[in-house]
Amino acid sequence: MYKCEETVESALEERSDVDNAVADNEANQVRVEGSADPGTIAQTIEHAGYTVDR
């Protein structure tokens, strides 16, 4: 696992509306389980220092 994957997963999983997050650097994707809306997920990832393709 890449450090960036851990950073994104941790940032997302700190949210009360995210139950689980799995980031895949090679696929450039993150899978999120929970009730967070896509905009909130994107903002959280960007706040962690990463770019989100919208």
Rank of each mutant, 00 (worst) to 15 (best):
T44K: 05
R31A: 15
D53S: 08
S16G: 07
D37F: 06
N25V: 13
A21S: 15
V8D: 04
E6Q: 11
S35Y: 00
E6I: 10
V22Q: 14
T44N: 05
E33D: 12
Q29W: 09
D37K: 07
A23V: 06
I45T: 02
V18H: 07
E9R: 07
E5A: 01
M1Y: 14
V30T: 00
V52C: 00
A23L: 01
D53M: 10
N20L: 14
S10C: 07
N25C: 11
P38I: 08
G39I: 07
E14I: 06
V52K: 05
E46T: 08
E14L: 10
G39C: 07
R15F: 01
A21H: 14
D19L: 09
E9A: 06
N20T: 15
K3A: 09
R54I: 05
I45K: 02
C4A: 05
V32N: 05
Y2A: 07
A11W: 00
R54S: 01
V52R: 02
Q43N: 12
R31N: 15
Q29H: 13
A23Y: 04
R15E: 13
D19W: 03
A27S: 03
T51D: 07
I45M: 03
E33H: 07
A36V: 01
D24S: 14
A36P: 03
N20G: 10
Y50T: 02
L12H: 02
T7P: 03
A42M: 00
A27Y: 04
S16K: 14
E33G: 08
T40N: 12
T51N: 03
